[in-house]
């Protein structure tokens, strides 16, 4: 549960980024705030900078300027390993192709997320097993490459939320799914985030997603002109 003193899950101020100096901004966000536990859909066409924005929020790219706070912690004030730790503790990420660790079992994929978030070793296995069970996965000791797409999706969601992050970033999570499965996957993601109290920022160019989110923004509307 959040309280009035709980900082926003995400607070962006005057964020600018371009891949080459002097070029037009790939990301230009004057301000964006997502309160704790809120779920927002960010739309935009291909090449509009949606995914790049998520990389910036995760601290995987350096902005040209600007400020990003995740759960009140400044991403860019932390450097190196500290920023990596912040990402592990405060953020979860879900990708279109799941990006699971090959050679690892479902359980180990989720445990890896807990390990980098600083969870004590003795708690890793039970927490990972519980997260997978809550998403209806029982055969958790199978290598992920031997699992169906639906099962892999659940592993990816469990991995993103198991650390109880402040914010989950979902990058086109349903782009490769048919409408029926896309809807099911989105329901899974949204419910999991809600259950864990995590805010969700989902980027998608799929118009069918709009109805699922009360908060919707177009990336172009975030820019200061």
């Amino acid at each position: 549960m959040t309280t009035p003193s709980t900082p926003p899950a995400l607070e962006i101020t005057d964020l600018k980024f371009s891949y080459q100096p002097g070029q037009a901004w790939t990301v230009n966000v004057s301000s964006l705030t997502i309160a704790a536990g809120e779920q927002m859909l960010l739309t935009g066409g291909s090449g509009s900078g949606k995914s790049t924005l998520l990389q910036l929020i995760a601290g995987l790219l350096e902005p040209t300027r600007g400020r990003v706070l995740v759960a009140g912690e400044s991403v860019f004030d932390a450097a190196g390993a500290s920023r990596d730790k912040l990402r592990g503790r405060r953020l979860g990420m879900i990708f279109q192709t799941f990006n699971l660790l090959q050679g690892f079992t479902a359980l180990e994929n989720v445990m890896a997320s807990l390990a980098f978030a600083g969870t004590p070793p003795k708690d890793q296995r039970p927490r990972a097993a519980e997260a997978l069970a809550s998403l209806g996965l029982s055969d958790i000791n199978r290598p992920v490459e031997a699992m169906s797409v639906g099962q892999q999706q659940r592993v990816a969601v469990a991995r993103a939320v198991v650390t109880n992050p402040a914010l989950v970033l979902a990058d086109e999570p349903t782009a490769s799914l048919d409408p029926e499965n896309a809807a099911a996957a989105m329901t899974l993601i949204q419910q999991s985030c809600k259950a864990r109290g995590a805010a969700l920022l989902c980027v998608s160019h799929d118009p069918a997603m709009a109805d699922r989110f009360a908060l919707r923004r177009s990336i172009s509307s975030l820019a200061d002109h």
Partner: peptide
């Protein structure tokens, strides 16, 4: 090629470059 993807995933999960 295979390792780069794994490295990227680990980095997303919070693994530092040094590690």
């Amino acid at each position: 090629d295979l390792r780069r993807r794994q490295v990227a995933i680990l980095r997303v999960l919070g693994c530092s470059k040094g590690r």
